[in-house]
């Protein structure tokens, strides 16, 4: 393919400027939330609005750190998101291994059923789950949140981990099985180390998803001390009319932990995703 040097340079300029534009749009609302969170109430209520604060202040954060959002809600969010993501990985690894390595009756049908479960939205089951939880008396508990998150995140976890285990050559395991290792030993000693990028990706996606989850939380949690951060932020909206700098400080506090987790784990995540962890 003959393409002139100038054409290539032009391509590069167009591609890079368009991508910079996309990144700017992606970042802008969050950046503005960040600068707003350092404004005073007077500056937030100034027309016309501007991007950077004239004087940087921690007023909004002082209010946030004294609020229930930091006192209760963030802790609950962490317990529910971390607990469910870890459990999803623990439940999904053996299941994915079974689908990947064993031929058994009904395997294909079960896999299809699990794929179908990914397509069923949580919204469908919520009325029933609410009734079940209220009859069992487990509304307003971390237990009910982690259980529902485990069940809704599991199909996706099994799906990603299966394609991750599929890509590991199985000769090593067979040698270990002949040496008398049980399947659980093989999973612990061979599969987990080799499938680590896929496991990290699964954990990251589930953790981000359930850190941010709102719908199940808003329905199951009405007691203030059990609420999660997303529900707490909505309460904020309702109680502090126009205190936008405080909402933005709250938003920044909710974003920061997942954003940092994402930045730390991003390489494995991008690699696993680009190798087709999620595909048709």
């Amino acid at each position: 393919m003959v393409r002139s040097q100038r054409q290539k340079q032009l391509d590069s300029i167009i591609v890079n400027s368009l991508l910079m534009l996309v990144c700017l749009v992606s970042l802008f609302p969050v950046a503005y939330a960040l600068t707003t969170s350092f404004k005073s109430e007077a500056e937030v209520l100034t027309r016309p609005p501007y991007f950077f604060p004239r004087t940087w202040t921690l007023d909004a954060y002082e209010q946030i750190f004294r609020s229930d959002l930091v006192r209760y809600h963030l802790g609950n969010t962490f317990i529910n998101a971390f607990g469910s993501s870890v459990l999803i990985v623990i439940f999904a690894i053996p299941a994915a291994y079974a689908f990947s390595r064993y031929k058994f009756w009904g395997s294909k049908a079960l896999q299809l059923l699990i794929l179908a479960l990914i397509m069923i939205p949580t919204l469908t089951n919520l009325v029933a789950l609410y009734r079940m939880a209220s009859e069992l008396g487990i509304l307003n508990t971390n237990f009910v949140m982690i259980t529902i998150y485990l069940a809704t995140g599991l199909p996706f976890g099994i799906w990603i981990l299966k394609s991750s285990i599929d890509s590991i050559p199985h000769e090593i395991e067979e040698a270990a099985l002949i040496d008398g290792c049980g399947p659980l030993d093989v999973i612990r000693r061979i599969v987990i180390p080799l499938a680590l990028p896929g496991i990290i990706t699964t954990f990251l996606m589930e953790f981000v998803f359930y850190w941010n989850e709102f719908l199940v939380a808003v329905i199951m949690l009405s007691k203030n001390t059990m609420k999660t951060a997303t529900v707490g932020l909505l309460d904020f909206q309702r109680s502090y009319e126009v205190a936008y700098h405080v909402w933005m400080a709250g938003s920044v506090i909710i974003i920061a932990p997942v954003l940092i987790t994402f930045i730390i784990l991003r390489r494995q995540f991008f690699r696993a995703m680009l190798q087709g962890a999620v595909k048709g």
Binding site: S26, P29, Y32, F214, V231, L233, G250, I254
Partner: peptide, 14 residues
């Protein structure tokens, strides 16, 4: 990927 890590509630607020 910044918008991806953000909750729908936070996105709505912002």
């Amino acid at each position: 990927f910044v918008p991806w890590v953000i909750s729908d509630v936070v996105a709505g607020t912002v």
